[in-house]
Amino acid sequence: MSKNAGWVLLLLVGTSGCQVVKEFQKNRLNDAEMILSNRKIEKTELSFQSYREGASGANAGKSGGGCGCN
């Protein structure tokens, strides 16, 4: 329960101070290194991590398929 409350609190704190940003003001947000998902160069890293570790997901990637058996 306290964990859930923590997430909600984080969401509220994180989004409460939002400013409206116009398209012409998004040059920093649109920078290639500001992308809110994994970058293409991380593709193989994510693949081997999902094979070598028990946890996977929540990274906007695939959540199954392929083997990873070796």
Binding site: G14, G17, V21, L36, S37, G57, N59, S63, G65
Partner: peptide
């Protein structure tokens, strides 16, 4: 494998953005 992924992304200001991600995966 069956999965449902949801995400909420939010721009905070001209320099800061964040995202919350949740997956439910059934194998």
């Amino acid at each position: 494998s069956y999965s449902l992924s949801t995400s909420w992304s939010q721009i905070i200001n001209q320099r800061f953005q964040l995202a919350f991600l949740l997956d439910l995966v059934q194998q």
